[in-house]
Design a protein around this nucleic acid. Structure first.
Lengths: 159, 159
DNA sequence: CCATAAACTGTAGCACGCTACGCATTATAA
DNA sequence: TTATAATGCGTAGCGTGCTACAGTTTATGG
């Protein structure tokens, strides 16, 4: 339902196929749609896709982690993490304090509010996952992951 | 070379695999890396990934198209196109005029500058493509495209 | 010990996605 | 024809990504 540029033409697959270097743009396009849909579903909880991923990470890791660890996990630049954490702190989803054993570290902790949100959040994202992969066999899903990881490694080995 | 969070740990594939709903995040991560690397390469030409794609589209379509057609092709929201076109006009990569047969339409045209840039741009992006798919067979590439298109259609059929 | 390097966080400024709203122009229907 | 709808573009405001630079704290080497 967000950004309805889709309804109009049902032949966009062909359109994309006609573009050279299609695969990279395809990945980008699918990524955009995923984020758009996730944000639409999560809007009700006052969350975003990136924020939900941070909640998931903290939930699976004792409820609090360093901002640096968050950065390593999300694989985004540190100013991006600063922004996400700031907005979530503003909205009461996390609290922050400085690590007293190493005052360079900023420890980010989940709040009750985010733990509550995390539960319903999970169902929404699972539903998206099911739609996304409807018609896929387990082997196909695995093969897709394998391909993406190989591309991921190829790109990272550039440097 | 941009955003060197990669050098540090070489086991990020595993890290990602340990996350639930990994595929969506993998697509997002690969998409981010692709854009980051493309932007790094294109910086020399004062271009971005999105802008290079617009140049490619116009080049393959007579050198000028309506802003609405651009929007349909890039599959992004119209304010996003407004921004991209404005910046490119600012930098002399396109010129704009209103269609006199239907004054609602804004026609965007390539300039000499962007046609020149388009040539070297192409080599850069092709190089990225080769790195990205090193070790892939043609069948694997085709299968990846097929999977992505199926996901694309699955997500679009939500509405 | 002290100077220098390394590590972590923060800020500034930008590109590019999005939604929501408004304006101008054209198409449609009564 | 004239009111209403549809279409195309623009602006406002925000989230998330980036680079480049600066500040604070800890680690290291002389």
């Amino acid at each position: 339902m967000p950004y309805g540029g889709a309804e109009k033409d049902r032949q966009r697959s062909e359109k994309i196929m006609n573009e050279k270097r299609k695969t990279g743009y395809l990945i980008k396009t699918v990524s955009d749609i995923l984020g758009r849909e996730a944000n639409f579903m999560l809007k009700e909880q006052d969350l975003t896709w990136a924020q939900s991923r941070l909640i998931g990470f903290l939930t699976r890791n004792g409820g609090e982690r360093t901002q640096k660890e968050i950065e390593n996990f999300l694989e985004v630049s540190h100013p991006t993490v600063v922004g996400i954490v700031s907005r979530m702190e503003q909205n009461g989803f996390v609290t922050c304090r400085t690590d007293q054993t190493d005052r360079r570290n900023k420890i980010v902790s989940l709040t009750e509010k985010s733990m509550d949100a995390g539960r319903t959040m999970w169902d929404m994202l699972k539903r998206q996952d099911e739609i996304m992969f409807s018609g896929f066999t387990a082997e196909e899903r695995d093969r897709l992951d394998e391909y993406l990881l190989r591309i991921y490694d190829n790109l990272n080995s550039m440097h």
